[in-house]
Structure formats: structure tokens, C-alpha cells
Design a protein around this nucleic acid. Sequence first.
DNA 1: ATTGGTGCAAAACTTTTGCAATTCC
DNA 2: GGAATTGCAAAAGTTTTGCACCAAT
Lengths: 147, 147
Amino acid sequence: MSGHFDLIESLRQQDCRLTPQREMVLEALHESQGHVSAEEIYARVQDRNPYVHISTVYRTLELLKELHMVCEIHLGGGCTCYELVGERRHHHLVCQECGEVLDVDDEMLTSLKDTLRQEYGFEAHLYHLAIFGCCRSCQKTCATHPE
Amino acid sequence: MSGHFDLIESLRQQDCRLTPQREMVLEALHESQGHVSAEEIYARVQDRNPYVHISTVYRTLELLKELHMVCEIHLGGGCTCYELVGERRHHHLVCQECGEVLDVDDEMLTSLKDTLRQEYGFEAHLYHLAIFGCCRSCQKTCATHPE
DNA sequence: ATTGGTGCAAAACTTTTGCAATTCC
DNA sequence: GGAATTGCAAAAGTTTTGCACCAAT
């Protein structure tokens, strides 16, 4: 229940107005500590104020994305999630069998990042990474699948 | 203009009926040599037969996904793309500035794959990988952004 | 006071579904 | 012949947009 204050401050510094709606969206993102859908953010915001409209949530997420305060993650199954940038950096292992999402530490990707930079001149924003596959507990069922 | 015939054969061997619609979807996927949206596949199919319905395209893609002949890729911007599995294996670098999509060779990821298996017991299906970031030509504009 | 932001309703877009008619095996 | 597949139309779900009103600076 702290920490989203600097985010709010950050908004103000970027010439954006500080509205309760925006604060609530930031708070919801901060509380959920990870990937949440627009719908989930909407639900959390509504707990505080049921009059906030979902289009406001979308517009706020759009704004935060432009300001690089939030990133959009596509975890498959057509679900788009959002996450605060700059918190504990991590990535996502998505199990295609059971849908479970594991977090992976960022260091795991340092060497990949270096290679991409050297070979392709590509600066990877790796807070966006989602890796699909098969988790430990689904491993047996998975065995029949290619790769 | 060849090579999708084994795909069709593969369909038959999996107890699936061979319809012109499915053949056209496979052909469209094969021709486009990479990530295409459902809409693009639909357009290609329509060039051959305007009476094919888009719901058939979706149903066929769903089927091919289940058979692991096609994989679904989320390249951001809300666009879902599809790609034949088993062609030249590669991955995608998506530039968040200009939207360009670069292909990356699979070998690049061998060590990452090994690490994930060892540390998390996670079997990565890395034909699904999309890496977001900033391409060489957008690098200058990108410089101001975090990470 | 002025600009920017919000709520609302409606549109736009993508994907899914129920069902009758058709097609493949 | 019989089950699987298709076309259609309609629904469902998500995201965007135009506009009048309201609020933050």
C-alpha cells in the first residue's frame, strides 16, 4: 500500500492531469503485482468507485503505455494483460496445456539480449517476453507433442 | 507452389476430412511464408473462392492448432497471427516503434531453452517466441526510452 | 477560464456459435 | 448413408470513438 505514489508523481511530471480514476488504475496495477487484464483492473477500480467507466480504464492504460509506465503482454488465448514497468523485472512462462503462468528472473536473458544486440542491432525490451511451452506438471501429457 | 501437399496428406492421416476450404487455408499459410492474420488468410482464400466463409477460416485454424500444424503468435497491437509449424524454424523481433518484424534464427535460443529446462523444468515451445523491442533503424528515437 | 479528462452510448472489430444444408469418405 | 464440415446469421467479447458535461490546473 505504498509505491504507487511515485507513479502518480511521475504522471504529474509528464504534464498529465492527476485524476482519481488514473490514480485508481495505477493503484490496481500496483496491487496486483503482475499481469492483469483490463477487465480485472476495471473490477478492482470498481470496488472503490462503481461509477468509473471501462472506457476510462482503456484510455488510461493507453496513456500509461505511451508513457512507458505500463506494458502490454499477450499471453495467448486472446487475453491481453498489462503490467507496471519497472517493478521487479521478470518474464513469463506460459504453459499451453494448463494455462499456468510462471515468472522467470530477468538474468536468465542477459546473454540472449547481448546476442540480439550484437547480431541484429536489436535492443530488446525484455520485460515483454512471454515464452510458451509445457510446464513440469504437464510434462507427461506433453510428451507426445512436437518439440 | 508445392509443399503444402504433404500438409494435406498429414490432415488426411489424422482422420480429418479433406475439403477444398481446408486445402485453401493451408495453401494460403504455406504461400505467405510466415505470420499472417486470420483476415489475411481469409483474403487469400477468397481470391480463389469468394464463397468461403470467414468462420470456416477460423474453424480450420482452430483445427490446425489442435493438430500442432499451425501456431498462433501474438505480435502486439492486438493482432493475432498464424504460422505453419515445421517450416524453417524462426522467431520474431517486433519493433515497438515502427512495427517491423524481423525473423531470428532458432539456434539463438538453444542456451535459453536449456536453462529453462534445467532451472524450471519447463519445456519451451520456442516457435512461439516474440521479442519486443527497438530495431536498428529506430534506435536513435528509442534512446530516450527506459531500457 | 481553459484545456484535458470522463461517462455514456454506440460503433467497430475480432472471434465464436447454433443450425440447416451440403459434402466427403 | 452417415458423420463431419460448411455457410450463414446472429451473438459474444473486447476495444475504440464521438460528444456533451465535468474537473484539474
